[in-house]
C-alpha cells in the first residue's frame, strides 16, 4: 500500500516539477531560445529544473543549512523531529545539514573531476588527430591498453598505489575517464581535420594550440557536450561508489556516498534515512540523463 502511494506521489511531483520548470524556463529564456524550451519534453524540463535546484543548493549551502557541516549536536540517530527535520547521524550531526553540504562537496568534486577529464582527454584526442603519425599511434595504443582494464578495477589499483585522499581521488578518476574522452574527441576530430578550412588555417601558419582551440574545438562541441553529461553521471556514480566503499571522500566532509555507508545500519531497523543521500545521488543522475537524452535527440534531428 505504501509502495503504491509513494509511486503516485512521485509521479505527481514529477509532472508538477516538469510543468513548472518548463513554464519558468520559457519565461526566463531569451527570445531566440524560446522555441527550444516550448518543444521540450516533460522529462527534460523536469531534469533541468532538478539540476538547477541542486546547483542552487550547492551554492547557497551555508545560507540554507540550519547547522554547521561537522557540528555534533546531540544524541545519535535521533528520529525525524524539529529542530532536526531529518534526524541525526551516527555521530549526532544534523542529517539535513549534511545532505545540503553534500550537494556542494559530492557534486562539486564530481564536476571538477569531469571537467579535468574533459580538458585532458579532448585536448590530447584532438592533438593526436591533428598531428597524426607516430604520436597518434603511440597515444592511441597507450589508451587502448588502459581501456582494456575495467574502470573501477583500474581506479582501485591506482588508489592503492597513490593512497586515498580527495586530490588523488580526483586525479585517478579523471585519468581513467580521460581515456574514454580521448577516444571520442579523437574520432570526432578526425572528421574535422580533413576539412578544407583546417588546411587553409594551417597554410595561414596557425600553431597547433590555436588550431585546436579556435578551429576544431568549436566544431566538435556538440557531441562533446552530450558526452560531458553522460561522463558526469558516470564519474558521479563512481565517486559515490568509492566513497561508499570508504575509499573516496572521507569524513568529516559531508558526502552522500559515505553518508550511506555510515548510517547503513538504520536500514535493518526499517528507517529510510540512509536512503536519502543515495536517493539524492540517483535523482541527480536521472535528471542529467533526461537532459542528455533530449539534447541527443535534438542533435540527431530525429522526429518521432
Amino acid at each position: 500500500m505504501t509502495i503504491l502511494l509513494s509511486i503516485i506521489v512521485g509521479l505527481g511531483l514529477f509532472f508538477l516539477v516538469g510543468f513548472a520548470g518548463r513554464t519558468a524556463l520559457q519565461a526566463a529564456a531569451p527570445a531566440h531560445h524560446k522555441p527550444m524550451f516550448r518543444e521540450m519534453p516533460l522529462t527534460a524540463s523536469f531534469g533541468l529544473a532538478v539540476i538547477l535546484f541542486y546547483v542552487a543548493v550547492a551554492i547557497l549551502a551555508p545560507a540554507i543549512a540550519p547547522f554547521g557541516e561537522g557540528e555534533v549536536l546531540g544524541a545519535q540517530y535521533l528520529p525525524w523531529a524539529a529542530p532536526h527535520y531529518l534526524g541525526t547521524d551516527k555521530l549526532g550531526r544534523d542529517m539535513l545539514t549534511r545532505l545540503i553540504y553534500g550537494a556542494r562537496n559530492t557534486v562539486g568534486i564530481a564536476f571538477a573531476t569531469t571537467a579535468l577529464a574533459f580538458v585532458v582527454g579532448s585536448v590530447l584526442g584532438i592533438w593526436a588527430a591533428l598531428v597524426g603519425g607516430r604520436l597518434d599511434q603511440f597515444l592511441s595504443r597507450f589508451v587502448d591498453a588502459l581501456m582494456a582494464i575495467p574502470a573501477l578495477i583500474f581506479s582501485l589499483l591506482l588508489l592503492t598505489i597513490f593512497g586515498t585522499s580527495v586530490l588523488t581521488l580526483i586525479l585517478v578518476i579523471a585519468a581513467v575517464d580521460a581515456t574514454r574522452v580521448y577516444r571520442l574527441a579523437r574520432s570526432v576530430a578526425q572528421g574535422i581535420v580533413v576539412m578544407d578550412y583546417i588546411e587553409a588555417a594551417r597554410l595561414r601558419g596557425e600553431g597547433i594550440w590555436r588550431l585546436i582551440r579556435r578551429e576544431i574545438l568549436p566544431n566538435a562541441m556538440a557531441p562533446l557536450v552530450a558526452e560531458f553529461g553522460l561522463r558526469f553521471c558516470f564519474v558521479f556514480l563512481s565517486i559515490s561508489a568509492l566513497s561508499f566503499l570508504g575509499l573516496g571522500i572521507k569524513p568529516p566532509t559531508a558526502d552522500w556516498g559515505s553518508m550511506v555507508r555510515e548510517n547503513a545500519t538504520l536500514i535493518t531497523f526499517g528507517d529510510i534515512t540512509p536512503l536519502l543521500p543515495a536517493g539524492a545521488i540517483a535523482l541527480l543522475t536521472v535528471a542529467v540523463n533526461f537532459v542528455v537524452d533530449w539534447q541527443l535527440h535534438r542533435a540527431s534531428g530525429l522526429k518521432e
Binding site: A241, T268, G270, A278, G279, I281, A282, T285, V288, N289
Partner: peptide
C-alpha cells in the same frame, strides 16, 4: 523505457538498500 533509464542512473548501493528495505525487512 522510462524505468530502464531510471534504473541505469541508480547507484548499486541504492538499489541494494531499497531491496533490503522491502524484501529483507
Amino acid at each position: 523505457n522510462a524505468l530502464a533509464l531510471t534504473a541505469i542512473s541508480f547507484p548499486e548501493f541504492f538499489v541494494a538498500y531499497i531491496l533490503v528495505l522491502w524484501l529483507a525487512q
